[in-house]
């Protein structure tokens, strides 16, 4: 198979979305850890109610980008950031935006499941109780709804008061997703959500992701290209902190514009 020469423009194909159809708009994002650059001049739009996957080699900045989307970098004073991120048209770094509220709207699920050391029920109700002002009955309903949405309800319905740490890894990850859904986010960021799970649990989580896109915007970081191909609608390929190519998933995987992209997805990276 002939290898394409990297003579095409340095940047590959781009899908673009109108501001009306996009949920997140990232423009000119530069991010450095101390003096080490992690993201360079990143610009892209994430479509609403679709699954968008970020792929790329380790250290390419895809997780960093994800954490920037709900301002988790705020905790780390070594991180310097420039550029703009807009959620539904509003700059997330604007002074009137409360970071806690932003994080409620932009939920995040991490690589390793991180249930709190409390009961299953309390885990799901955790975020709701933070918001306050809800009756017990209402919390019960939302917990059930969230667990059902995360396809976990049948497995835990009779032991809601058991410790969350007694669940299996795959169940824990779905519990974390339920916990995030319960606070009613608009965007769900998933940072390699299946990398610590066995194949069957992985399939369940992927199915869940596909089901959730009817009501949520999902952003998925993964190093598993089959997974990206299976669940995402659009895929962005990042390398060395730069966005290389961003296209509908089918296009990117079957007909990548750039040799760099093709080398990566066919496993010929140096």
């Amino acid at each position: 198979m002939p290898v394409k020469q990297d003579t095409a423009p340095r940047r590959g194909a781009f899908v673009d979305f109108t501001p009306e159809t996009s949920c997140l708009e990232i423009s000119g994002l530069d991010l450095r850890y101390g003096d080490k650059p992690a993201l360079r001049d990143l610009t892209l739009r994430v479509p609403r109610h679709r699954v968008t996957a970020f792929i790329g080699p380790s250290g390419c900045g895809k997780s960093t980008l994800l954490r920037a989307l709900n301002r988790l970098h705020d905790l780390n004073e070594d991180v310097q950031m420039e550029g703009e991120i807009r959620l539904e048209g509003q700059d997330i770094h604007a002074p009137e935006v409360a970071v806690a509220e932003l994080r409620r709207r932009v939920g995040m699920v991490f690589q390793a499941p991180n249930p709190f050391p409390m009961s299953i029920y309390d885990n799901v109700a955790f975020g709701l109780r933070l918001q306050g002002g809800l009756r017990k009955r209402r919390i019960d309903d939302i917990v059930e709804w969230a667990l059902r949405s995360a396809a976990l309800w049948e497995e835990v319905e009779d032991r809601l008061q058991a410790s969350a740490w007694s669940l299996s890894g795959g169940q824990q990850q779905r519990l974390v997703i339920a916990r995030t859904l319960a606070v009613g986010p608009e965007v769900l960021l998933l940072d390699e959500p299946a990398s610590a799970l066995d194949p069957i649990s992985t399939l369940k989580v992927e199915e869940l992701i596909r089901n959730l896109k009817s009501s949520l915007t999902l952003v998925l970081v993964t190093h598993n290209m089959q997974q990206a191909a299976r669940v995402s609608d659009y895929t962005a390929f990042l390398q060395d902190g730069e966005l290389v190519e961003y296209a509908p998933t089918d296009t990117l995987f079957t007909n990548p514009r750039l040799a760099r992209t093709e080398n990566y997805i066919t496993g010929r990276m140096a």
């Binding site: 933070l130 918001q131 009613g184």
Partner: peptide
Amino acid sequence: MPKSSSSPLLRRRLRQGRDR
């Protein structure tokens, strides 16, 4: 989709203030 209730803005301010 569940929505948080009554006076979220006030409560949010309160939480933020307490945190600071």
